[in-house]
Design a binder for these strands. Sequence first.
DNA 1: ACTTTTTATTACCCGTGGGTAATATACGGA
DNA 2: TCCGTATATTACCCACGGGTAATAAAAAGT
Lengths: 218, 218
Amino acid sequence: MPFESRRRARDEKREAVLRTAVALFLEQGYHGTTLNHVAERLNITKPALYNYFRGKDEILYECWAIGADHVDERIDDIAATGGTGLEKLRKLIVSYAETMTTDYGKSLVRFDVRDLTEHNRKIVGLAKKKIDQAFRDYIGQGIKDGSIRPCDVKLSAFAIAGSLNWIGHWYQPGGALEAEAIAKEFAIRLTEGLAIKSIRKKADKPPIRKRKSRGVSG
Amino acid sequence: MPFESRRRARDEKREAVLRTAVALFLEQGYHGTTLNHVAERLNITKPALYNYFRGKDEILYECWAIGADHVDERIDDIAATGGTGLEKLRKLIVSYAETMTTDYGKSLVRFDVRDLTEHNRKIVGLAKKKIDQAFRDYIGQGIKDGSIRPCDVKLSAFAIAGSLNWIGHWYQPGGALEAEAIAKEFAIRLTEGLAIKSIRKKADKPPIRKRKSRGVSG
DNA sequence: ACTTTTTATTACCCGTGGGTAATATACGGA
DNA sequence: TCCGTATATTACCCACGGGTAATAAAAAGT
């Protein structure tokens, strides 16, 4: 079956280009990375890249699309799930945080939409909107079902998304903190102020007992 | 006194260039903005800019420096103040959030350090480190003095800084939310999970009392 | 009014880097 | 072995934009 194997070989190369490109874009910045750099690291020459992509901005767009798709899938998963708004929100936080520790996830927050074509910029804009909307929806649901205390939905969504997006700027594999651990920790920490039932982890160093540590929340 | 008036006139023009440049950099992106654009908006020509700046990257650096100075001053103010770690942390959040609603503040998070010279990049790096350190210090102090419950200082600082930095990406004057209001809201919201004594605002619909909200942490 | 200094303009340079045309090489199929 | 297709290379184009040299206009000093 040469059809298939050939097609697969092609796709693998395409992916290799993307992996290399996104890594370089993150290392050196999109404008600091030339197509020659990308090609060089792949041990090919620049024009060879044009067998797989229409141009530099399309490569950038594909990175973005992969990251967005990744989150999108998880959103669909969560939407299909049951549970309170708070539970859904926590799931989304975990998924999004984990995505932010990957190169393609970082694409979502480290690159500039203005480097895309008008057309692709719109697509990216919609994807971002969907993600933002998911955060707001779950917070809104949580307020309705009583799992989240009343608050400004928009502002809360911004606050949470901001923390998560920031992960894409500071996280690097091999650091002190593992991706999964970060995700779990953030899911709790970012919803502490919102949740009606407090769920302190045992893992936390228990607060010093001397102090009159009164009950949490009003 | 032509000495002074002349000097002032020059400084005013310099500032005008910076204001125009930072606005354009934010609108169109640093790489999407040419010096011709900047000059055009000021009704002068490109080479005239070189009377005030050595080059494009120096303009970028100055924007950054103004933003960083702004935060730095507030940090020094706060350091001179008394109060618990939590109080200091809240003050810092307010100051930082407000800074993030200004053009120069946005510079701190919207531009890429890699567009600076090696030298300036180091300076910026130090300034950022100082800000990050302030967040960590205050959280650490808060834990010591009992105003903040024990937690991972680094991670908490990241979470807070992330939310605040994100403001620089979504805030635009004239929106539904006023800068000061955002700052105050964030100061509360971002410390809700950390604070030992909860300070729910009366403005919020009070949380439903039915639930057995047990004491904090194990 | 004349000179000097500052500030601005016109005209130009040129490195960079995305993108392309022409061409060679490797590979699958008959 | 030959052909066709896919993939790669070499050599090149050229628009863009940061930066500069030469020069003019404006303002300050005397």
